[in-house]
């Protein structure tokens, strides 16, 4: 799955995107965040407070408990601040 990061999440992890083979037990975004947090200290820092993260699957906003299904792209970012 392609992972894309924005703003403070991108800066903490150090890359704007990466491709990961998520393990079979990872079924929803919650699982994905828990697994990704173990990948590096940057990931752990970026994902330490799930309440301050927002998500999009294939460019549509979804909640933390959304199933990954066969989505191609998971975006993880802080609450938006445009306008």
């Amino acid at each position: 799955m392609r992972l894309v990061y924005f703003a403070a999440v991108r800066e903490a992890i150090g890359v704007a995107s990466e491709t990961c083979d998520l393990p079979a037990h990872v079924r929803n975004i919650h699982d994905a965040i828990d697994w990704l947090a173990g990948q590096s200290s940057g990931h752990a820092l970026a994902f330490q407070d799930k309440a301050r993260l927002r998500f999009a699957l294939d460019q549509a906003m979804v909640p933390l408990d959304a199933a990954l299904g066969d989505a191609h792209e998971l975006a993880i970012f802080p609450p938006v601040t445009g306008g």
Binding site: F6, A7, A56, F77, P78, V80, T81, G82, G83
Partner: peptide, 26 residues
């Protein structure tokens, strides 16, 4: 404009005269 503020994927960083910068909180 109200819904853009909460729904559209933009993120804002503030730059200061002393060279520091900080991401704006929602």
């Amino acid at each position: 404009i109200d819904r853009l503020k909460t729904d559209a994927p933009f993120w804002k960083k503030e730059h200061y005269a002393d060279g520091t910068s900080v991401w704006v909180d929602a």
